[in-house]
Design a protein around this nucleic acid. Structure first.
Lengths: 341, 341
DNA sequence: CTGTTAGCGCCTTCAT
DNA sequence: ATGAAGGCGCTAACAG
């Protein structure tokens, strides 16, 4: 039988309250008494039943998600996943609030982080933008004892507790590797389309892509990077122009979002041979494009997994508990036409 | 405030015990009373707190995992994941027992299923072998009200509740697609190495691989399938022979396990140009082989995810609850040298 | 500093 | 067929 507080109380010769004080690191226990209790805990191999503890506390984890209100399917999907998690909150003992902020706006994000902090939640998850005032706002959060998790895009130099997202350098490298091997000919031009160099995930994907291209496929030339700000219309215009001016384009790597525009541009282009195109994030649009052969591969991060992972980590941090590391590693999904879900 | 049994009791004008009887579908409640309670439940939007219920019941989910004692890294990893889950059982309210059976032995599996049934656990997870007596044993399980989940390899025709594994037809198709695109030349021989045609996952991978090869890469000829029984030594011998007799082999798809032998054979072969090799399951061996360029791609199923998923599903089935479908879909991971974990 | 008591939401005797 | 009372493991007042 699993030992309970009663067992350790009687073994240590103290009352339940004292045991509770020791377990919860509360003050007001004589060092000697505390030692007795701790010994009993160790000897009996006691592990506290969090379900019972949460029941007694009537605890509910208040969580804030700060998400950009981008008009692209990936972010829409991410927001939907957070809402889905919020709708399960009655069983999770969580209460999730969403704050939407304009995309690529560091000041707005920093401000939202401060707003979140004042609500004194158990934890905050947010899509980071690389900027000093964001870093400072995050550190204010952790200083207040609030768990902080970055989602999708990480924030170096901050004291966030965890990053729920993929290894974006590896994603870029993978894209390059696939493209290099998919292209039959050597020598030719490859275009790269990013969202914004303001966010770390895009910079990292680009770095990974460039690195492998230079190391392993030196005959492929990279054209100057286009920035579409993850906006479908902007992306469509940029890609259409690019295809126009480079009729013999071999490959195109779209490392950001706004692929609706990308696909439209590709479909309406009248190239002799269509380029090998690799994009990110599996949505209805990219799924169809893959099936039709407009895209050759899609790298994906599972937004549902990221959100559920962020919640698990925030709850665990709030309780000072460990997580199953392997479960929280977000993998890079590679989709071809053949393994669509 | 979330409604509790007290709220619905007072609203329905009955006692807690009666409410409990209705909630748990226990007999001994007048139809009229039951209706009153059910109305109250609906009107208040009551959802029962499973954590509190489990606490009161002192419930622990007894789970049995039946696993083949194969000598290959994938199965060893799977067994390790189950043991890891078992070691977390004190927090999961599960008690997991592992039964090991000889590989590819339908009779032994059927017998183990019957043994498991007699222990009256909440659920059973097992790696299926396609055979009639296994199907019957599984149906005896579900007839006894025990949840049954297939792991890694599925069992058609049985009444198992769920399959915790990947879409193996898609995996085979994906392998073919990658290989066809990776191979620079047209025309040539491709070898396929399976474990056993007795298990459904291997048959499905082969079918998917063949289908795409025929549809999209008709110039690549498939050599007769080799069966290595997932045994490293057998595999090594078969592959060495194959490389010997087909010096100009273009590609090799290893759709089973025992890749230790595959890699040894590849390394010691003195081919002019090494073939494009795609294998399954990321282990220490295949990871190293990918990094060294001996393998070109590895398709993986995350054993940890499969085990955790099986446990979640078994627990949910035992309680008659729903699961988050998306969370239980096991994805096919594609690993290249560039996205190794 | 330490102990007693009541209760979180639910389930299970045992009466009635 | 229904209800009252006690308890699951833990925490939170409130006393001492």
């Amino acid at each position: 039988m699993k030992p309970t507080v009663h067992d350790i109380a009687s073994k240590a010769g103290v009352s339940l309250a004292t045991v509770d004080r020791v377990i919860n690191l509360r003050p007001g226990v004589h060092a000697v008494t505390r030692a007795k209790v701790e010994t009993a805990i160790l000897e009996l191999g006691y592990v506290r039943d969090m379900a019972a503890a949460n029941l007694a506390k009537g605890r509910s984890y208040a969580l804030v998600f700060i998400l950009p209100n981008n008009d692209n399917s990936f972010m829409a999907g991410l927001r939907a996943e957070v809402r889905a998690a919020a709708s399960r909150s009655y069983v999770d003992r969580t209460s999730i609030r969403i704050i939407e902020v304009p995309p690529f706006d560091a000041a707005a994000l920093a401000q939202a982080l401060d707003v979140a902090r004042l609500e004194k939640p158990s934890g905050v998850a947010f899509v980071a933008i690389d900027a000093e005032d964001v870093v400072e706002a995050v550190d204010r959060l952790t200083d207040s004892g609030i768990a902080a998790v970055t989602l999708v895009s990480d924030l170096t130099g901050s004291r966030r507790d965890h990053f729920a997202g993929v290894d974006n350098v590896a994603a870029g490298r993978t894209a390059a590797s696939l493209m290099g091997r998919f292209l039959p000919e050597k020598g030719g031009d490859v275009a790269v389309l990013a969202g914004s160099m303001l966010v770390k995930d895009h910079r990292e994907r680009l770095a990974g892509f460039k690195a492998v291209m230079e190391e392993e496929f030196p005959d492929l030339r990279l054209l100057p990077v286009l920035e579409g700000r993850d906006d479908p219309d902007t992306v469509q215009r940029l890609v259409a122009e690019c295809l126009e001016t480079n009729p013999q384009l071999l490959g195109l790597y779209s490392l950001g979002a706004g692929n609706r525009g990308l696909i439209k541009a590709l479909k309406s282009s009248r190239q002799l041979s269509s380029p090998c195109v690799i994009a990110h994030e599996l949505t209805e649009n990219t799924t169809n494009a893959l099936a039709e052969g407009v895209l050759d591969a899609v790298l994906n991060q599972n937004a549902g997994h990221e959100v559920r992972s962020a919640i698990r980590v925030l709850k665990a941090r709030a309780d000072g508990l460990a997580v199953i590391e392997a479960q929280e590693r977000i993998r890079i999904d590679i989709f071809l036409r053949d393994n669509l879900p």
